[in-house]
Amino acid sequence: MNTFLKMALLFGFSLHAVAHEAALEKVSVAKDVPSIERGAETLMGACHSCHSMKYIKYRDLIKFGMDKKKVNEWSGGQSLDLPLLAQMSENDAVLAFGKAPPDLSVMTKARDGGPRYVYSYLIGYYQTKDGLPGNHIYPETKMPDPLGIIGVTDEKQLSEIHGKARDIVSFLAWAADPREEERLRLGYYVLAYLFVLTVLLYFVKNQIWARLDRIS
């Protein structure tokens, strides 16, 4: 949900909106190239056959700093100017799963809870009583358990899968907002500048208004 309103509501009087988020797992989104590259690699293997990322081009991945060889491999030798389209056509996917798999380009921005939602969803698979796969976060999902977490009890294996999910989420978060780093960097300069300017304006205002005391 809308973060700013949620804050306002927290200060106010509603607990409703927060309750939903409490159910989500916490995840720290990585910003470093290796994690994001690992995430991309996992995604290319586990998700890309059905899910496209049409706003990301292979060239963008190289520009971000990923290994050129790997990206070439993912693109299958196609032009790097092409977007990361799914290998399966949408029609085939609907036939297979009964639902079109959504594009993942802005996924972490398109769900309440953002990266936390996606992470919780990825690791939220479990076996129902009927022996079918279920998901805690999105029970109506048609997607089969992509990371194979169902039935895994071994601690080491579990934490490995959690790490994979975290890498995928980090990659998705980067893909949804590739200009974030540029934005934050510019933001600090702008704020520093505005702070100086405002202090100056404050002194100017005081000096100009001080004339009034002298006159009257």
Partner: peptide, 8 residues
């Protein structure tokens, strides 16, 4: 002057 300060 006052408006510009507020603007800051």
């Amino acid at each position: 002057a006052k408006d510009f300060y507020g603007l800051g």
